[in-house]
Design a protein around this nucleic acid. Structure first.
Lengths: 340, 340
DNA sequence: ATAAAATGCGGAAACGATTTCGAAATTATG
DNA sequence: CATAATTTCGAAATCGTTTCCGCATTTTAT
């Protein structure tokens, strides 16, 4: 990389002091309009670009936000990313992106990497297996602004953005009941995750609201391995006390269910109704089309970034207070939960 | 952010010179094992983290690679990103990610932003509408290592990674013919894109290889707007000289076709066979399941990153020579192209 | 007319690391 | 034992900005 011209060289070319040029380019009130114009046009002409590292070093900020997600091939996280980037670009912020692949150890390493100040702040969704949060605590203790979304950790006192997991799961379950389901299963990933727990609560309360008894056997804990999940679900569906309705807490488990169903004699929605949390645009293309609970991914991304940037640019006026902000999901009924 | 301890302070704590401490931490041969140990343990104890900007400023490199993609909610690009990140993480590189949203103006802005050296190199896939490439040329002329993948620009003399677009399109078309199709259409996005042209060539040659005449009316140029595409495709399918086979150059046009078909009396594959370039894992879930040409996304990402990092770490031994590296796609036949 | 304030700019320090050059201290060599 | 060679470390320059302080000169206030 042929490094461009420096501020000092630009100043020399103009017969001005570097300090003056710097101030002119930063539109300081101390500099006359005449010199400002001269400086700016010469900077244009010589193709001057301020060195971001010199500036970061001096100002102790990087104009960079780190985003940590558990997986990339997931329409929800991709949409959140788009939402974050939209706001970040507006304010001249850059995005460092890290994918943990649902691996806690990887998450720990990445977080530790960010301890050196490479990013001004962090937006993250934790790994589903994260139990030890000392690495997150260390970040927060160091004063690095951090915001969680979706997969949050309540123990870290900061602002978190989620959707109305409880209500959505409750509504989804209620919908299945209304469509005639008697034995409703919940497919989920991990019992430790806050959102999983909330969705489970919503599911539980919906079941109990009917005066039915909760059957722990109807909650299926799946893995991150597609193959294994399909097999697991297939076995579940072949068992004598198979469910006749499923609330899937995660998009990919709904897909796995479609795969599993193909291997059985069961048909959706006649034998089995299915509704799932999902942000995939192709839900309507599946056969039958999939009823979904769609999370407000773009809004979540936008709000995360907006709050963070406010905090970064006006630290005295904004704070990442310890609260959970909820943005509601939208339920879309399609064929997969059609009643008789 | 409570800024951590600096090298100088660490040195003071150890009663050593900053230079010594720096060398010790960088495992220089000039420092005795004894002092190295002392320094390292004290660094651990005081939680020392080198300031990346000071280092970048001094060394004139950022350990950062910028990745520019036209869209994020796309399994192909997401997989490539994963492939790049995998290698980058191995070598301690960070990823700045930018989404152009298929907007040339946005691409231009982002590229110009990178002119200041924030990233050591760039991996990118251009916007489908990019015609003026002066911004890309400027990057390259400045000596910033840049690699293209998939959506490449031949005019910039550097290494590019693509799949065997011509052969895949040829094979895909041939497959449709073998399954009995007589009027085969090509759905594509943009005639300016190199990959579109290659795929068109493959399609053309396959048609001609049968001794058939090319019908320009059978190539459908679509937009980036889902709604419009569905309408366009629907009209096409309702027209008297509708096709009985479709080679879709882009995943989302295949999905749009499914949507459009739903609005007609046509059925896949009896009335209409469909095969598409796609990296989506749910191709097998569609009804009927979609025959696909799957690009080696992960490999492409891996190879981009590997070559780039070699070039960055050993600039004298590696060069981004002007060549196009081809990694073959894999065709998977499913129900959507089933013969009678 | 003189003091006070405002304007416009330059000099130099500072941010936190790496590295060149050189100087001690230690060990080896004749 | 004297000298050379090696090992181990320190002082200071450097990367490219921003900003604190200072100093003229001009404008405004008294």
């Amino acid at each position: 990389m042929i490094s461009g011209i420096s501020l000092k060289e630009l100043a020399a070319e103009l017969n001005l002091a570097p300090s003056t040029v710097s101030r002119a380019l930063n539109d300081s009130y101390e500099i006359s309009e005449a010199t400002k114009k001269k400086v700016i046009s010469m900077a244009e002409k010589l193709n001057y670009h301020a060195n971001p590292f010199a500036r970061s070093l001096r100002e102790n900020k990087s104009k960079t936000i780190a985003v940590i997600i558990p997986e990339r091939i997931n329409s929800f996280f991709a949409q959140v990313m788009d939402g974050i980037e939209e706001i970040a670009q507006e304010h001249g912020y850059h995005l460092l992106v890290y994918n943990t692949h649902e691996d806690t150890e990887r998450e720990r390493k990445i977080v530790n990497l960010l301890l050196n100040g490479r990013a001004d702040a962090i937006v993250m969704s934790v790994t589903s297996q994260t139990s030890d949060i000392s690495h997150l605590r260390k970040l927060h203790d160091r004063g690095l602004p951090i915001i969680f979304f979706d997969r949050i950790r309540a123990e870290i006192p900061t602002t978190k953005f989620i959707t109305n997991d409880y209500e959505s799961a409750y509504e989804g379950t209620k919908h299945l009941i209304k469509q005639g389901c008697k034995r409703i299963a919940l497919f989920t990933l991990c019992k430790d995750l806050s959102i999983s727990q909330e969705r489970q609560r919503g599911y539980n309360d919906a079941i109990k609201s009917e005066g039915w008894e909760l059957d722990p056997g109807l909650t299926l804990y799946c893995s991150h391995n597609e193959e294994i999940n399909v097999k697991l679900i297939e076995e579940f569906l072949q068992s004598p006390d198979r469910p006749d309705g499923i609330l899937s807490s995660v998009e990919k488990l709904a897909f796995a269910t479609y795969h599993a169903v193909k291997r059985t004699k069961l048909r959706i929605p006649s034998d089995l109704k299915l509704i799932s949390f999902s942000n995939s645009s192709i839900a309507g293309l599946l056969n039958p089309s999939l009823s979904t609970i769609t999370q407000p991914a773009l809004s979540i991304g936008n709000e995360c970034a907006e709050l963070l940037i406010k905090k970064l640019t006006k630290p005295l006026h904004y704070d990442l207070i310890d609260q959970v902000v909820t943005i509601p999901s939208k339920i879309t009924i399609r064929e997969s939960t059609l009643g008789e």
